[in-house]
């Protein structure tokens, strides 16, 4: 943890790290969406589309 003075803005290196962390988080969330979709299809099969209205 870096001790810093109030109002001090992020250094370019810190900004880069924050960007890569955000990107990793976005990719993880996207992967989770895909994972839930694939698991739903795998568990329910074509039956997922055959529901009584």
């Amino acid at each position: 943890m870096a001790d810093r003075k109030p109002s001090q803005s992020l250094t370019p290196e810190e900004q880069k790290r924050r960007r890569t962390r955000s990107l990793a988080l976005a990719l993880t969330l996207g992967a989770l969406v895909l994972l839930f979709y694939v698991v739903t299809i795998a568990k329910l099969g074509p039956g997922v589309l055959q529901r009584p209205m």
Partner: peptide, 21 residues
């Protein structure tokens, strides 16, 4: 925005990279 940066700064910014996590 300045206040947010300030509060982040007092809380201590994360220095971690993805590889550290």
């Amino acid at each position: 925005a300045e206040t947010q940066v300030e509060s982040l700064a007092t809380a201590g910014l994360s220095q971690g990279d993805v590889s550290d996590f």
